[in-house]
C-alpha cells in the first residue's frame, strides 16, 4: 500500500493533512462570526453594531485557531524529535505492542 507504510498512515499523508487544515478554519470562523452578527442584528434590531462586533470576534477566533493549530504542530514536531533522539527504540516497541493488542 502506498498510503500506509508499515501498517500506519505514511508520514507524507499526516504532514499534508496537518498543513492543509490550517487555512480553512480562518475563513470559516470569519464567516460564522459575520453570519451570527447579521442574524442577531435582524433579531434584535440593532442594525450595524452586532454585525461589526461579531465580525471582529470571528476574525479573532480564526487567528486564535490558526495559532493554536501551529502550536499543536510544533509540539508534535518537538515531541517527535525528542523521541528519536532519546528513547527511539522504546517508543517503537510501545507502538508495535499497542498495535498487536488491537488485533
Amino acid at each position: 500500500m502506498f498510503f500506509f507504510r508499515r501498517d500506519k498512515p505514511s508520514e507524507a499523508m499526516v504532514l499534508f493533512g496537518n498543513v492543509a487544515t490550517i487555512g480553512m478554519q480562518l475563513v470559516a470562523a470569519t464567516f460564522i462570526g459575520l453570519a451570527m452578527g447579521y442574524f442577531l442584528d435582524k433579531w434584535l434590531g440593532t442594525e450595524p453594531w452586532l454585525l461589526i462586533i461579531f465580525l471582529l470576534l470571528g476574525i479573532v477566533t480564526g487567528f486564535r485557531d490558526v495559532y493554536r493549530e501551529a502550536m499543536r504542530l510544533q509540539r508534535g514536531a518537538e515531541a517527535e524529535s525528542a523521541g528519536t533522539r532519546g528513547a527511539g527504540t522504546k517508543d517503537d516497541d510501545a507502538r508495535g505492542g499497542s498495535g498487536r493488542q488491537g488485533k
Partner: peptide, 15 residues
C-alpha cells in the same frame, strides 16, 4: 469565541 470556533468546524470540514 469558542462557540464561533466550534460552529466554524463543520463549515470548514464541509467546504
Amino acid at each position: 469565541l469558542e462557540i464561533v470556533s466550534h460552529l466554524a468546524r463543520p463549515l470548514s470540514l464541509t467546504l
